[in-house]
Amino acid sequence: MSNKSKHQDGMSLISKTISSFMTALIALFGFYIAFYGHLTPGGGFAGGVIIAAAFILLTLSHSKKVSLKKFPDIIASLLDNFGALSFVALGLLGFLSGAFFMNFVQKGKAFTLLSSGTILLANIAIMIKVMAGLFAIFVGLSIFGRIVAEGEKGDMR
């Protein structure tokens, strides 16, 4: 790690330029997969994984400085809890129509976005949870791996 200062942050210019386009497109595709989970294969988990992968690409190609400015780890941990809580709240709201996780929203026209009642909301809650959780896991593992390798202590950022 002695020649660390010689390196620029992140990967080469080409990777940076292309991933600055691709990050937004990949995240958009993840939202598409999560929102249409009731019509096509996929759903909240797969969409959340793809959105987290977009931010992982940003971390790889630029550096942790850039991606943690866009998606701070504090926000990630808050969103993680928020996703889990909103999923449980959705289940409890099912008691409005009789049972745990019962549908309480009007069903719309078939084969459109709003045709699934609470499934869409549940997918969004799972998406938020998985997205924040996976990104936090990636950042955490990359930090801990380096601490063990170098014997660094204290500086968690």
């Binding site: 990967m11 080469s12 080409i14 990777s15 292309i18 991933s19 386009f21 691709m22 497109l25």
Partner: peptide, 15 residues
């Protein structure tokens, strides 16, 4: 997407 990503991946592997 393939036309954008595949040459970038090739460049990254070769570097």
């Amino acid at each position: 997407f393939i036309l954008m990503t595949s040459p970038t991946a090739a460049h990254a592997i070769s570097k």
